[in-house]
């Protein structure tokens, strides 16, 4: 007997605040999950008409295509500074920057740290997949020791390239941020936890609390040379050992 979905309750669908544009990400890439979580958060908070997204440089350079809200494309690493200017000009708007590990934790180090240190009332989504996806799989500041990338062909050697930077821990040292957390997406429980964290980070801004950072451990199956399933397992077993999950700062409610 054919199923009549018209008589059923829709329990999961595309968030209203996302456009119909198809994602440009590779199969199994977590960027798409994060996009959906942000869209769902914007829906739940009812803020689409006053939200401005700031897209970085990297695989998520097209982020402005996915959201049904105003958006800016920022120079590589500068999204937190751009968010600062925009939010100070229009404090009534909800401003989020979406930044990868190269953008946020390498080329944008100064802008990232100082926006956090000023306690800008913005929401930063920091996607840490330990690699430079768009340029072809080069080393990121967060690349694990021993990890093979296009620019560490023999594996990352701390003697010449240092260690993976725990950037959220650096930010957590500052007095101003109200919420700094590290989340993952390797199973449904983590996805639900991450969804709560993203919502909290936006809620903080809406309530005028100040700077919130959600670091999300994501996969890059293409450049990790793993299947999407293997990639999830790798995050669960290995990446979380270097980048432990959980809240680093949670001030106030």
């Amino acid at each position: 007997m054919p199923v009549d979905i018209a008589r059923m309750t829709k329990v999961f669908g595309r968030p209203e605040s996302l456009t119909q544009a198809r994602s440009t990400y590779c199969p199994g890439c977590h960027h798409g999950i994060i996009t959906r979580i942000i869209g769902q958060t914007i829906d739940e908070l009812g803020i689409a008409e006053r939200t401005i997204g700031i897209a970085p440089v990297g695989c998520s350079v097209f982020a402005y295509l996915w959201y049904r809200c105003d958006a800016l494309q920022a120079a590589h690493g500068r999204a937190s500074a751009v968010a600062t200017g925009l939010k100070r000009a229009r404090p009534d708007l909800v401003v989020f920057s979406y930044q990868g590990d190269g953008d946020f934790a390498s080329i944008g180090t100064a802008e990232s740290i100082h926006a956090a240190n000023r306690g800008e009332n913005i929401t930063v989504i920091f996607v840490n997949n330990q690699i430079y996806g768009m340029t072809g799989g080069e080393m990121a500041p967060t690349t694990l020791v021993g990890q093979h990338t296009a620019t560490t062909p023999d594996g990352r050697d701390p003697a010449t390239t240092g260690y993976p930077i725990r950037f959220s821990e650096l930010i957590a040292q500052l007095d101003a941020p109200v919420y700094v957390t590290r989340q993952a997406l390797y199973d449904t429980r983590r996805i639900m936890d991450c969804t709560k964290a993203v919502k909290k980070a936006f809620q903080n801004q809406v309530e005028g609390r100040g700077y919130s950072l959600v670091e999300i451990l994501a996969t890059c199956p293409t450049n990790w040379h793993m299947s999407p399933i293997q990639s999830n397992q790798h995050v669960a077993d290995t990446v979380t050992k270097v980048f432990p999950l959980g809240d680093l700062v949670n001030r106030g409610a």
């Binding site: 059923m8 329990v11 595309r14 198809r22 994602s23 990400y25 199969p27 959906r36």
Partner: peptide, 17 residues
């Protein structure tokens, strides 16, 4: 759970009322 993990928002889920 399937839709939660789908990076392409390709899945809609319906449940019996």
């Amino acid at each position: 759970f399937c839709a939660l993990t789908c990076p392409d928002i390709a899945l809609s889920v319906y449940r019996e009322k």
